[in-house]
Design a protein around this nucleic acid. Structure first.
Length: 613
RNA sequence: GGCUCCGUGGCUCAACUGGAUAGAGCACCUGACUACGGAUCAGGAGGUUGCAGGUUCGAAUCCUGCCGGAGUCACCA
């Protein structure tokens, strides 16, 4: 039923019979025809000029004649230079539509049972989620959906970074300045509550540092440690980290907190659990609003000691080297600097932890693939990690993939949490839903629905706008987030796609039952109809390639283009008042097919469709 | 500075992986509703694809060199 393949195979036969040469079907380029020429599909014949030793245009004539005779799907052809344009028979359009229009899960492949784990979100537990997390979460979620559609058995996971110096900062700040307040007593969402103390710590630390800079001690340090070329300003900007570790009172408290935590101090552990608990409650709300969930959580507090035994075997195999207590890996083979894996105090690092959790996941689930959704600032880390695991011959090593995505810039510049230049996830969702509400009120198209139903519709619209705005961009590319544009509901947006779906629903409601068999006499398939069917035909393959390329933006752009074709069709072709019963039935089938496909397509992106809007 | 990635109308993004005259949306103009839903459609204007070479039937896409930007170069995660 796949017309592209039919054409490709036809061309293979043609080349064999005409020029006695063998070519691969996949290598035959079949494009959709430009609108200014007659035809729907175009074969590029330039590549055959060497084997045929003819001009591309003549080859086009040869192959065109052959296909016209051999393939019932091809009724006519024309050639323009090296391009052979084919006109496809009306019967094919009708037959294809019949084969798929009422499949609700059109595009889903048969499950093949291969297991894959997708890791995404993985936040620190010291502050609320922000725009960067949203991109990560949307990518992770749609990767899960798309791979499921492509037939995989997908396990969703995240590593919760629940320990370390960051959370200790929040803990110190709360202990010193919190006056025993809680999220309950203040009415602040847990993750924001804890985040506020993270900010409080930073602020107090800045004050402390600023004060210290005026002291004699600071002057001493500058005199002894600054390079000649360094100005005071440059030096002390860089020195801040060292100050935190050496002189700072707050820094000392945070570090002591971390040491006490690692020693299992009951009081510290209790505070840690309480504050993390607040954060989790907050995260749960955000995740629910984003419509995502996980099958399995790994906590860094449980896994940070893992990986050491694997490292032992790595040393034996000569992949890693011991240097006192310290262990390091040589990355010369992949063009990176050597990397410390175990510190000289014997404690583990990020790399060793990730080695441990990778093995743990394999032991837990037997996954063949692991996809890590992590920003591109960690490209080298994953390059190194995967290299080690491959050298160790881990059974899952060939299935490791870093879904690296570009960070988000604001129109005002880079996002920086320490400077408070962040876009908060909860605020963002609220503002986009509020905007949808304003729009909805103006339009007044759902006022006969109950208030809860209306709110539900508005929520779906707002979230669609936000999600689509982010997911439509190729993950690898850095993107600019313009709050003004994200609040737009017209043009290339989520609501635009939803609107196309809502139109299909509206027409089908009014059509009631219709006879699916009455399209036989329809013999005037229009361009608007053909272009929709061409796109419908591409969907299953697109799902596969989006899974292979780990690229949800492909699906988003597809949905937009399909919606666009439908809107055009809707204007150009009367459906309920079609010229004949056959035309009406044909077009209603298109409505069903487009509705189903848009709904599954958007679902792959984590976007819900309203029935009305 | 080394390595990696990226430069496409004023702005945000595409381009079937080397195919025809580089496509959409926003913003800006002009038109289309007593309606199968106008959150829509039709049309206009806007480009030397950062610059310069090269590879070939054909380059935004591949190669080289510049220019500009980002990331990374921790015994942090």
């Amino acid at each position: 039923m796949n017309i592209t393949k039919t054409i490709q195979e036809g061309v293979v036969k043609a080349v064999k019979s005409l020029y006695d040469a063998d070519i691969e079907a996949d290598s035959v380029a079949v494009n959709t025809t430009r609108p200014d020429f007659e035809g729907e599909y175009t074969v590029v014949t330039f590549p055959f000029s060497k084997i045929a030793r003819k001009k591309p245009q003549e080859i086009g004539e040869d192959i065109g004649k052959f296909l016209e005779q051999e393939l019932e799907e091809v009724v006519r052809y024309n050639t323009v230079q090296g391009f052979l344009n084919l006109v496809i028979a009306d019967n094919w359009w009708k037959a294809f539509l019949d084969s798929m229009f009422d499949q609700e899960k059109y595009g889903y492949a048969e499950p093949h049972g291969h297991k894959v784990m997708v890791e995404f979100s993985s936040p620190n537990t010291n502050k609320p989620l922000h725009l960067g997390h949203i991109r990560n979460i949307l990518l992770g979620w749609s990767t899960y959906k798309i791979m499921t559609a492509a037939g995989y058995d997908v396990i969703r996971t995240q590593v919760v970074n629940d320990r370390g110096i960051a959370i200790c900062r929040s803990m110190v700040a709360w202990k010193n300045f919190g006056e025993g307040k809680t999220p309950e007593s203040t009415g602040i969402k847990g993750d924001h509550f804890v985040g506020n103390y993270y900010v409080e710590f930073a602020k107090r630390f800045e004050d402390e540092y600023a004060q210290w800079l005026n002291s004699a001690a600071a002057e001493e340090v500058y005199k002894h440690e600054a390079k000649d070329t360094q100005t005071r300003e440059v030096f002390f900007k860089k020195y801040k980290n060292t100050y935190f570790n050496k002189q700072s009172e707050l820094g000392k408290q945070a570090r002591e907190m971390l040491i006490a935590w690692e020693a299992g101090d009951p009081e510290v552990r209790a505070l840690w659990e309480e504050m993390n608990g607040w954060v989790y409650k907050g995260f749960d709300v955000t995740y629910e609003n984003l419509g995502v969930e996980f099958d399995k959580l790994y906590h860094e507090s449980d896994t940070y000691l893992l990986g050491k035994e694997i490292i032992e075997s790595a040393i034996e195999k000569g992949i890693m080297h011991r240097d006192g207590k310290r262990v390091w890996a040589d990355f010369e083979a992949i063009g990176l600097e050597p990397k410390t894996v175990i510190k000289s105090d014997g404690t583990s690092t990020y790399t060793s932890q990730d080695m441990g959790t990778a093995r743990l996941r394999y032991d837990d689930y037997g996954v063949e693939k692991m996809v890590y959704v992590v920003a591109d600032e960690q490209n080298d880390h994953f390059k190194g990690l995967f290299h080690i695991l491959k050298m160790l011959d881990e059974p899952y090593a060939d299935g490791l993939y870093h879904l690296s995505y570009g960070m988000i810039d604001l129109t005002t510049g880079k996002m920086k949490s320490r400077e408070g230049k962040i876009v908060d996830a909860d605020d963002l969702m609220k503002s986009v839903i509020d905007e949808a509400m304003e729009n909805s009120k103006e339009r007044d198209t759902t006022s006969d629905l109950s208030e809860t139903e209306q709110k539900e519709v508005v929520r779906k619209i707002g979230m669609a706008a936000l999600k689509f705005f982010i997911i439509k961009v190729n993950p690898k590319k850095r993107m600019t987030f313009d709050p003004h544009q994200s609040l737009d509901f017209q043009g290339q947006t989520g609501p635009y796609v939803q609107n196309a779906y809502v139109r299909t629903r509206s027409v089908l409601r009014k059509a009631g039952d219709f006879s699916v068999d009455s399209t036989e006499t329809y013999d005037q398939v229009k361009d608007e109809e053909k272009s929709i069917i061409i796109q419908l035909q591409q969907f299953p393959e697109l799902v596969q390639s989006a899974a292979e390329n780990y690229d949800p933006s492909d699906i988003a752009n597809y949905c937009y283009n399909l919606a666009k074709s439908y809107h055009r069709f809707f204007h150009e072709c009367p459906i309920l008042k079609a010229e004949t019963e056959a035309a009406k039935a044909f077009r209603l089938k298109i409505c069903v097919a487009v509705g189903n496909t848009l709904k599954t397509g958007m679902d792959l992106l984590g976007i819900e469709m309203p029935e009305r809007m």
